[in-house]
Amino acid sequence: MLEDLTEITALHSLRSQHETLVSVKEVSRYYGKNKAVDNISFDVKRGEVLGLLGPNGAGKSTAMQMITGNLAPSNGQITINNFDILDKPKNAKANLGYLPEQPPVYKELTVDEYLTHCSKINRIAHSHQRDAITLAKERCGLNSMSKRLIGNLSKGYQQRVGIAQAIIHSPAVIVLDEPTVGLDPRQIREIRSLIRELGNDHSIILSTHILPEVTATCDRVLIINRGKIMVTETIIGLQQRIQSSSLIVAFQHPPSNDELSQFDGVLSVDKIELGRYRLHHVPEIDPSENIVNQSVNNNWRLTEITPEKLSLEEIFMDITCTENEDIDMTTKAEETV
């Protein structure tokens, strides 16, 4: 009997591990004639952290506002934990925590008063409110700030209060719009590890334009540009994309360019300086082993061999900036950031 029960719970947790908590189907959103989000679809499963990546104005925030019910999609369907956000908003929103770009805090309240209010509007039972508030404060490192007025806190702490508000009712889905903006590096690390921790049993959608943040926190990445999903990729897949397609090699007795270009898979050879070359090769074939062997056989005295990695940034630029005007826009955006 007891075994049955444990089996059932084990089965249940197994199933719930793969349960889809957020489902976005063919969602578009227009502002007037301007299409901010163009026919996007994706799912987020329990225990998954999904990163939305894209340049400014790509439609990340609009997508998040639609997922959280702050905006109605022009067409398409969004469900949270199997509740449609438009048909059953109360059920859907009970499973939802949202941190908008600007933390939605009331500056005239203290941290405790504000979080009490949040726990009430999220319908946490009265007997659990105190525990929920304590846990949220602890997780966001707000314990010493309980009695302070939110208006007097620094931007970083206001951001933490915003995160505390989003997780206070322990929702199945947490949506964070640029959660680490305005934090100092130590806080950023804390918040990232908090996101990872929360990601174990919640679904998290976060948006950012800080690229290392994605590799640090997310399981999967959506790259959005001009309202369209350009790439959906797991972090592992993305890292494979990062895999090199060029090698830096240096020799004390360098062979000729021709000899180097004879290697399998090598497309072209650039001379960097005397004895140092950059070899471009097809990603599928890695010529480094051959080069090492040949170097030993022919006494080229190999002194350096480094695979050149494409940074995530380069991939990102590759995907999002297909036209020159795009690059202009991104650099401008970076300047303002």
Binding site: G69, N70, K90, K93, P100, Q102, P104, Y106, C118, N122
Partner: peptide
Amino acid sequence: RNQTLALLLSAPIS
């Protein structure tokens, strides 16, 4: 204006 309406709109309140 303060963009705090999102708090109410994403909470389970009609």
